[in-house]
Design a protein around this nucleic acid. Sequence first.
DNA 1: CTAGCCTTGAGA
DNA 2: TCTCAAGGCTAG
Length: 207
Amino acid sequence: MLLDMENHSTLLSLNMSPFNANSGDSPVANQASSPLPPQYGSPPISAPYSSCQQTMGMQHHHQQSMMMSQSMNSIDTSYLFSSGANAISGIDMGASYQITGPPTSLTGSGDIPDTKDGIEELCPVCGDKVSGYHYGLLTCESCKGFFKRTVQNKKVYTCVAERSCHIDKTQRKRCPFCRFQKCLEVGMKLEGECLFFVMFYSASGNE
DNA sequence: CTAGCCTTGAGA
DNA sequence: TCTCAAGGCTAG
Ligand SMILES: [Zn+2]
Ligand SMILES: [Zn+2]
């Protein structure tokens, strides 16, 4: 059912940048300059890695990598609108699931606490307690909110490290880039069928 | 910014 | 009417 979607999403990812299109907004990460409390790690690093903008630089699949080559330096939250299809630009849902791939949780098996422990009630992103289904899967309230804020405000984060920071309940605040990256990896997405059509329409040359 | 709680609207 | 997820609100 999402076979055809791939193509659409593809071209969308390629040419469409609803967010970047706006020259007025370039809310590139503001961690260092943010009013965040002096936590353990909000290094004033101007970043020698400054080029690490939110882009799924996953080492996995090289198949779709080609399409995201050009948008490498800018975040494309547009792929979030790919109506549940796993055809997003950089991330491959299929592989993503394996990352978190808890044999006893996530789609497929059973989200229901069939097992003894409350393993499946852990947020796949940070490990906190799940509060329900949010953006496609069971996540905690904080990650739900984080994802929401990120998408709604078109936030663009930057990782001052290698874009592979470990995310857990206590460190999730440290690197929003990696947190969001993980959100995407585990499959969080916007339920945007409407948006999909809107975008597809626009992309069709109908503006 | 973060995250818990609240309101809301759609579907069962 | 109940349930649940999206989005709003806001204290910290
Ligand atoms: Zn979480
Ligand atoms: Zn990071």
